[in-house]
Design a protein around this nucleic acid. Structure first.
Lengths: 188, 188
DNA sequence: CGCGACGTTGATTTGCCTCAACGATTGTGG
DNA sequence: CCACAATCGTTGAGGCAAATCAACGTCGCG
């Protein structure tokens, strides 16, 4: 069922059964909201198929995409999930999706029952941490053109699943600017 | 000696001795480099006193400060530390400092000897992760004026320890722009 | 004292945003 | 199956915020 989740590490059949019993499968249609800003965040989600986005809505009602998630990725408002505070971000589905969710409580109890799972998630978190750090570096040091090129080469699979205005939001520019940048890149 | 490090969690005297034996104390002068871009990263560092900065140097030889660290903070090029790759950032001392370092190898062995330590660092990592996420949101959604105000109110202790051009680098603007922003804020 | 480090101010340029209009494509109901 | 609307991307004109380039005031220190 959730075969992709723990492919990086080997667990016994008993452990896998134990872990899988805590997961719940959800089916989402394009446009469905998985998690709303302002709500308590009790779950994290693993994507089996489809595409989702996490975004932040600012004071001017503009939304800013923080991350995309496709097959085999995890997603949540982790800030809220970790600190047991209210979500500041919203997650919705931008391409029909199948996801599996697990609650924070179940997560913590699994950590105690299966310590290797904590190691697994620590390493996963380390990878996500590194990704965020790279994004901050890119934000600070790259031009819009460079940011777009980096995005395309770093996430070729995601690029196929999302609209250009989603990419613009992720990069922090308007759709017009992205359009002009794309034009220049093609001309070269 | 490294009293501040584990104040959030209680360990036995034996465990503390075990942990402390893996740490090594270093004294740094302003301008000293702790970690160089391009080198392998084998340690992470805990700050007892003083102030350090992690920064990235881009193609145009401009540097971009990714984070500051003062008393009780941890610092390293975590991306390189976690993935065992070469550092892409440099860390140096901007105010005379005392730090304690621990190697990655010792860290991993301590995780096995004292599982609660892994929980401790996982939670620390979760906090840092949340911080980075907030920074990305700020970068995408705030004006320069707002970013500066947020910085000052979020890190009042750091603001006292660093030059304005360090803050400008952290915010991703020139010193001239920061100067003008500061002027406008005072006038109000 | 004289020098370098730091911050400020002004003039000009540049990149992006905003507003507006308009093709192209997709989807939908008659 | 076609007509029409909605969605999406593109293009142009004008304005604004920040970068750039340059000069200068101030402070601390050898």
């Amino acid at each position: 069922m959730i075969s992709g989740i723990f492919k990086d590490i080997s667990f016994s059949q008993k452990e896998i059964t134990q872990i899988e019993s805590k997961f719940e499968k959800l089916t989402l249609k394009k446009g469905d909201t998985l998690l709303n800003a302002g709500k308590t965040v009790n779950h994290q989600y693993f994507i089996n198929s489809g595409c989702l986005r996490t975004y932040f809505v600012d004071n001017s009602a503009k939304d800013h995409i923080i991350q995309f998630a496709i097959k085999d990725w995890w997603i949540s408002d982790y800030t809220a999930f970790f600190t047991s505070s209210k979500a500041i971000m919203t997650i919705d589905c931008i391409q029909d999706a199948s996801v599996c969710r697990i609650s924070k409580v179940d997560m913590e109890s699994l950590y105690i029952e299966i310590p290797r799972l904590e190691t697994f998630f620590r390493k996963k978190m380390e990878g996500a941490f590194a990704g965020f750090q790279k994004r901050i570096i890119g934000n600070l040091s790259q031009s819009t053109k460079e940011k777009y090129s980096s995005f395309i080469s770093t996430y070729p699979n995601i690029e196929q699943s999302v609209k250009n205005y989603h990419i613009a939001s992720y990069l922090g520019v308007t759709t017009e600017t992205l359009s002009r940048v794309r034009k220049k890149l093609v001309q070269k």
